[in-house]
């Protein structure tokens, strides 16, 4: 019966994952390997193709009506940033990185909303102290977003804009500092992470484990969080045994990734803080500001 309960938990989290995350690993890998019936993604590999592809990056095509509604809520708030930016007489090539960065912020804010909905679907999460729910999201959400970038990436580039665009790693590396430094550590992490060959049902459990970390700073009531995490960890261990019977030590290897993630997030937050100082005209999305402020 205990194993049956763990399997039911795995199914529940997988269903929530499919409900809240529009671009699954299965779909992303199909796009990356050219196996989709739809058109191939638009490739951004230089400034010219970036300018051509900008209309896609603005995320105008949204997968579902529910996402469309929620997304407009987030972009309305963010629209003021692009408006303010248009008045500045910047060199067009200097401005393009900032515009791209603003688009990334809008998508990230939407992704935070998706992760929040997923977190709320973890059994027991919404019964936790509300302040602890906030703390778990504040500290966990960037780690979750970085894990979720892995399926979109290969060694040559990454899918963006819900899989409609492929941006090359070389192009990202050619941007001016510190923009060029932002995604390279995520590529390095993703290439290694992808060798574990997790599927979407494994990912759902792993994301829940990361969210339910009882050692986040400032938690008021750690015990119920650790109890929830322990149950999900059991479900993950069983899932990996059943889904990857030949992959030795996969559970242990996966848990080790959580240590790598903390360093990547710390470095990421420092880069954003650097950007805030160096790019006078750059504004941070209010939701992302909330998350990053006093994080590490």
């Amino acid at each position: 019966p205990e194993a049956a309960d763990l399997r039911a938990l795995s199914r529940h989290l997988y269903e929530a994952y499919l409900k809240y995350f529009p671009l699954t690993k299965a779909k992303a890998r199909a796009i990356l390997s050219g196996k989709t019936a739809d058109n191939a993604p638009f490739v951004i590999h230089d400034m010219k193709s970036l300018l051509e592809g900008e209309q896609f990056i603005n995320c105008k095509q949204i997968p579902t009506p529910e996402h469309q509604q929620q997304m407009s809520a987030l972009t309305v708030a963010h629209g003021g940033l692009s408006g303010a930016h248009q008045g500045l007489e910047c060199n067009i090539l200097d401005a393009v990185e900032l515009r791209f960065f603003h688009s990334c912020q809008s998508r990230s804010a939407e992704a935070v909303r998706e992760v929040t909905e997923f977190a709320k679907s973890i059994p027991g999460f919404i019964e936790l102290d509300l302040n602890d729910q906030v703390t778990l999201l504040k500290y966990g959400v960037i780690e979750v977003l970085i894990i979720m970038m892995a399926p979109l990436m290969n060694k040559d580039g990454t899918l963006i804009a819900y899989g409609q665009i492929f941006m090359t790693r070389e192009f990202l590396k050619s941007l001016r500092k510190p923009f060029c430094q932002m995604l390279e550590p995520k590529f390095e992490f993703s290439v290694k992470f992808n060798t574990l060959e997790l599927d979407d049902s494994d990912m759902a459990l792993f994301l829940a484990v990361v969210i339910l970390s009882g050692d986040r700073p400032g938690l008021l009531n750690v015990k119920p969080i650790e109890q929830l995490q322990e149950t999900v960890l059991h479900a993950l261990e069983l899932q990996l045994k059943l889904n990857h019977p030949d992959s030795l030590q996969l559970f242990a290897k996966l848990l080790q990734k959580m240590t790598d993630l903390r360093q990547i997030v710390t470095d990421h937050v420092h880069l954003i803080q650097l950007l805030k100082k160096s790019e006078m005209e750059m504004c941070l999305h209010p939701l992302l500001q909330e998350i990053i402020k006093d994080l590490y």
Binding site: T116, V134, L137, P286, L287, E290, K293
Partner: peptide, 20 residues
Amino acid sequence: KEKHKILHQLLQNSTSPVDL
């Protein structure tokens, strides 16, 4: 609570364009 107003709203399903 004020420091994490939007996160609170997202958790309590009370996010609207005006709030954001």
